[in-house]
Amino acid sequence: MSHPIPDPADHLADDPPALEAIGLGLKYRRQWALRDCDFRLPAGRICGLVGPNGAGKSTLMSLAAHLLTPGAGEIKVFGGPPGTPAARRRTAFLGQDKPLYPRLTVAETLRAGHELNPGWDQEAAERIVRHGNLSMSARVGGLSGGQRTRVALALALGKRPDLLLLDEPLSDVDPVARQELTGLVLAEAVENGTTVLISSHVLAELDGVCDYVLVLGDGRVRLAGDVDELLVSHRRIVGAHEGDDPVPELDGHHVVEVRRTGRQVTAMIRPTADLDIDWDVAEPTLEELLLSYLRSPDAPALFTPGARPAAGAGAAR
């Protein structure tokens, strides 16, 4: 089955979002790992999940994969709770440490995938493994980290999920394989209309891959929405200004971040009106935008239309 890739503006379509969090929270002991989390990931999107260590990225993934249950609020997968048989079939999860059974061979691991998933696509799984020149009879325990990642990815994609959750999937893969595997995931996702939520520390890696982004900081949503809309609405401006006093040129705009090196001032802003200044103004790259938000934990959270749950959609518009 395939899902039409929705138009970015079509966020109020009847299709339930692939992932939706409403007031979602989870406490470990006495510390909130995730708190008051509201966001919406429309189906068919490839969403980057970004945040510093301990921001709640893995917690969010585990909640979506039904490995954890929310302590507050709710999380929905295609409109329903993650624990239902249907949600279980439609969701695939690749954890940070890529757990696999070390004593099974690659072929047996894929067979386990077949035995445990009714919609299994053996051909797709084998294709991914074969691209890495992996022997089907090799024991998983003897594989390198990168090879294990490949097998784990084959297992996740062989399931033919509608929602693919990838938690730092390529952290131990060499640059060549990284590019190849990214391309593979993208191709599979586009071909099948799979929604992908992928977390990564390598921001450059997300550029050109993601059309949606979710930034978490300190267990809360900092930024969520369509990448193009976010980039269009932000400006990276560079100019000169003496001293440490406020920069008048920034007045009236939403300022995300201001950095000064000597006389030079670099700022990430969300202009509220036309920028009519003498500074160097450019649309930021995704990496620049994400870095600005990550470096300024006090900047107010921003959602593009449709990136908030239905109840809050009116307010977000």
């Binding site: 048989p85 999860f93 440490d97 757990p99 059974y101 998933n117 009714p118």
Partner: peptide
Amino acid sequence: GTYRLAWTQS
């Protein structure tokens, strides 16, 4: 950690 592999199948 393989329980997480098993519990995220169908």
